[in-house]
Nucleic acid binder design. Structure first.
Lengths: 204, 204
DNA sequence: TCTTGTATTAAACATTTGTTTAAAACAAAA
DNA sequence: TTTTGTTTTAAACAAATGTTTAATACAAGA
């Protein structure tokens, strides 16, 4: 059946996701992945041609998972402050369910930047969404509701406050000796504190 | 001379720093480092015993470079808001001079968390500094000068806003197609905007 | 100059790793 | 049952990589 094929593919994808996020691209071996998937080594190349190709697919998935929802929020019709709340909520929610996603993307992008920038270059859809948001900001600035800021910097700040704690989890749990559980709760609470914090900083 | 020995050591350290930050621990090879240092491969083991040991030394250096100055700022006698400005300034200044430092530490810590947490565990000096800062916060909260916040979350926010843009540089330059030069200028400006932003968010 | 300890080199070694191969197992169609 | 195409397996291969070795060059002290 074709069902069988899909099932094996999934097993491999899941295993690869696990191993790549844990060890990085270079650190992960095809044998690690095969073992994790409980599958013969040669099957990996049979199903996915090469390690690089397999990683590309994993990366693409992670990427879509994160950015898909974000673009939705950015594109809808609510107020800026609501969009900020929406972005913060989505980012943290996604990362709470998939804490390794951030590391996977960052570790790889810092070594191989093209892997990501290719996904944005020449994407006019994205550009349109950004411009629209910037105009929305400018309007509220003129109305005296918020301080002036570029969309880029605002987005940078949101991303920083939401994503960084996940990237830095090993650091912070080490420095402040928190347990795994506490960290989840902390991030859950931060959904609102971060949004409040940003909005407070923006209020004119 | 002993001078000669130190010189070779330095050549190796510099080369290792360069290669490790660029390719990560696993991605960097001893042959890469030897080539970068323009030195025979076997010299690396002769001088530094093993790849792992060499990395440890590089990591230790990077770590001290970042945290040394930060602890200074945290330990001095200025007001909270001044300390925040001080921290932001120091972090960004260090990373502007050494943009790869952040990636080096984060990439490695996420794969090998013990490497970092070992440096904090049982360090009562650090704990003292943290507690002192927390008390300073609590006092200002009681005086109605600032909103209540834990030192940990405040530190997390500062770190996030300062460090994240360096980690995410490949992402942001890709997404918003900025040049290398622009990015430096942006971060230079952020020294004050970040501090203002944080303080605005904290003001009661 | 001879000796002795250190620095440097080219080559080799043992493992690891991504990938391929050739044979076997399996399933479905004829 | 035989055939045909697909999936799975164990083994092998070639390249890369951390480390060691054994020989040589070098510098300083006797």
């Amino acid at each position: 059946m074709d069902n069988q094929r899909a099932e094996t593919e999934n097993k491999i994808i899941e295993a690869a996701m696990k191993v790549f996020t844990k060890k990085g691209y270079k650190g992960a071996t095809m044998r690690d992945i095969a073992a994790e998937a409980e599958i013969n080594l040669a099957m990996l190349n049979y199903y996915f041609r090469s390690k690089d190709n397999l990683f590309d697919i994993i990366f693409e998935r992670a990427f879509k998972q994160i950015y898909g929802k974000l673009f939705e929020v950015l594109a809808n019709n609510s107020s800026i402050f609501d969009k900020i709340r929406g972005l913060v909520n989505e980012i943290i929610e996604i990362l709470l369910n998939n804490p390794e996603l951030a590391s996977l993307i960052f570790a790889e992008v810092s070594i191989n930047p093209e892997r990501l920038s290719d996904k944005f270059k020449g994407n006019s859809e994205v550009e349109k969404i950004f411009n629209r948001f910037q105009k929305q900001i400018d309007k509220e600035v003129k109305l005296g509701i918020m301080k002036p800021i570029s969309f880029m910097e605002l987005y940078m700040n949101i991303d920083a406050l939401c994503v960084f704690p996940f990237l830095a989890k090993p650091m912070f749990t080490g420095i402040f000796n928190l347990s795994e559980m506490n960290y989840g709760g902390l991030m859950e609470r931060r959904k609102s504190t971060i949004a409040d914090f940003i909005i407070a900083g923006l209020q004119a």
